[in-house]
């Protein structure tokens, strides 16, 4: 699998260990900087380090999702219905790239935010 190859290439195999290193690494760093600021550098390097971890988690999530799908198929059930989020007017259909197709979490901005909120009532205002 292509994704697996990419993951191995990065050379990081244990996200938990790496994350612990990150916490120690940046947890003890000073929070104040007195020099001329170039906030881009820290963000750039940081996301390369973090990318190995979140990439690993992402790969693992997709792996589990596809595994669930395979097991469901094995027992003759259809995989989880994805149509709701795909029909959403908002991004989600676009946001769900082919490589994330196994991730069943609704990504749509609207759906995600709506699900967290109590139902709206028509309020009167004067």
């Amino acid at each position: 699998m292509k994704r697996a190859a990419i993951h191995r290439k990065s050379g990081f195999r244990d996200p938990a260990f790496l994350f612990a290193v990150l916490i120690i690494y940046f947890g003890v760093m000073p929070t104040r900087a007195y020099a001329y600021l170039d906030p881009g550098t820290g963000s750039f390097i940081f996301q390369i380090l973090v990318g190995a971890i979140v990439g690993g988690i992402f790969y693992f999530k997709n792996f589990i999702a596809s595994l669930k799908e395979k097991i469901a198929r094995l027992f003759g059930r259809k995989p989880a219905d994805d149509s709701a989020s795909q029909s959403a007017q908002n991004a989600d259909s676009a946001g769900r790239s082919s490589s994330t197709a196994t991730d069943n979490k609704p990504a749509a901005a609207n759906q995600a935010a709506d699900s967290n909120k109590p139902a709206d009532r028509q309020e009167k205002q004067l």
Partner: peptide, 12 residues
């Protein structure tokens, strides 16, 4: 951690 990283690399 992102903020710490920014501060750490700010003068490097």
């Amino acid at each position: 951690l992102h903020a710490r990283s920014q501060a750490y690399y700010a003068d490097k």
